[in-house]
Design a protein around this nucleic acid. Structure first.
Length: 369
RNA sequence: GCAGAGUUAGUGAAGCGGUCAAACACAAGAGACUGUAAAUCUCUCGGCUUAUGCCUUCGAAGGUUCGAAUCCUUCACUCUGCA
């Protein structure tokens, strides 16, 4: 097929496998230009260049090693040129560890009412200003390189998995692969003067909806391409979790062991465990920080509690006595947090965010050797 | 003491003869959230354990009316002027 290209420019040894159970969980080391990271690893989303409500130190305190940022959001405001002038993504948000940028592909889905797709790319309407913005595979690569991310993602097309949207699965599948070709061409052009150790890592995105055959084909196409890592996209977009699990289960034995596998957008503890147990190395999600700002935290047993509930009004215990996060270790009580949430004190959301990030990263750590 | 204005569900505040258990906001209670248009959104919020049903409400007590939170009388408070 047109979009198959020989593997001849992969960075070698970016992933060192330490332990691998057949088709199951593995632990390893991901080598980036900004340091090595143990896997599996959870990577919080700092869409606008920071993990919402947290300083880099607070994120680090939760055991986090990699932070995401978003191409679409930083492109429309303040713009990649401004970020570059401010020193690049790392200096911008003071996160000195590895950073990964998402391509803007997810906004093709999440802003579906505000965008128009053509083969060339996607025209978005800025949700705030109404300005029209155009992102193509090439532009996404340019933005991500300019932002200075250590790992970047190919610009893909994903659709919802409800009855109406699922009809577009095949189209999104094909387009994602055509766009990957263009991403790779542009990426090589933009990085041709970089030394191998300076070059960021490129992740291609597997699509195919809930169709196992398409997923398998997509994975093959991605793995036959000159990408450093494999990203699994288009899941956790509202489908029953069993449907997502079927896809993850099907792909588990098919991954290239030499490359890191990144499941996009998964952050429910149960899903995190399932994914890791089916060979996923990296995951990102807004859930821990968004839920935390909404006063929902995870506790022992993957249960979630609502800190605003009346039952916690005079509860002197921390969120989870077994947790070693900053909030729990310092014994911020549920009663205190409930109160601060009730009066809209942002510190409550920050402390809960640290806790939820720690909760997910502890799950990841439990799978490391 | 005189003259005005007011008293509505936890709070603030609409309503000014029927379509009012009573808008709206806040507070309160519960829930949702998975590559962040999300410190957001949804539901409940007089009682009856749940209903196109019944009951009790709009400072208090009387009255007018087929019908009153809405009109009248008296009373009780509150606020603003003048003393």
């Amino acid at each position: 097929m047109l979009y198959l290209t020989p593997v001849n420019d992969l960075k070698l040894n970016i992933f060192e496998e330490i332990n691998q159970s057949p088709n199951g969980p593995r632990s390893g080391v991901l080598k980036t230009r900004r340091g090595d990271v143990k896997t599996p690893t959870f990577m919080p989303d700092g869409t606008r260049g920071v993990v919402k409500s947290l300083t880099a130190e607070q994120v680090k305190s939760a055991g986090i090693d990699i932070v995401l940022a978003n191409t679409f959001h930083l492109h429309i405001q303040p713009g990649e040129d401004v970020v570059a002038k401010l020193g690049g993504l790392h200096e911008f948000g003071k996160w000195q560890g590895p950073m990964l940028t998402d391509s803007g592909g997810f906004q093709v889905f999440s802003l579906s009412k505000l965008r128009k797709i053509t083969e060339d790319g996607v025209t978005f309407k800025d949700p705030v200003t109404g300005d029209m913005r155009f992102i193509s595979p090439e532009i996404s690569m340019q933005i991500q390189l300019k932002l200075g991310a250590d790992m970047i993602v190919a610009f893909d097309h994903l659709t919802g998995l409800d009855e109406e949207s699922i009809k577009d699965t095949q189209e999104a599948f094909d387009r994602t692969h055509r766009w990957l070709e263009r991403c790779i061409v542009e990426f090589k052009k933009l990085t041709k003067d970089m030394k191998p150790e300076e070059r960021p890592l490129l992740f291609g995105v597997v699509q195919g909806g809930l169709d196992l055959s398409l997923r398998e084909q997509s994975l093959k196409i991605i793995q036959d391409s000159e990408v450093d890592g494999i990203a699994i996209g288009g899941l956790s977009v509202g489908e029953p979790r069993e449907e997502m699990y079927k896809v993850l289960n099907h792909l588990a034995p098919l991954y290239d062991p030499k490359r890191p596998r990144f499941l996009l957008g998964v952050g429910d503890p149960r899903d995190l465990r399932y994914a890791i147990e089916h060979g996923i190395d990296m995951l990102d999600c807004v859930l821990p920080t968004r839920n935390a700002r909404h006063a929902t935290v995870w506790v022992e047993g993957d249960k979630q509690i609502h800190l605003t509930n009346a039952q916690f009004i005079d509860d002197i215990s921390p969120i989870d006595p077994g947790c070693d996060c900053y909030a729990c270790v310092n014994n911020y009580s549920k009663g205190f947090l409930r109160h601060q949430f009730k009066v809209n004190e942002p510190l409550a959301g920050s402390l809960a965010s640290i806790h939820n990030l720690r909760y997910l990263q502890r799950i990841c750590e439990s799978y490391r050797i």
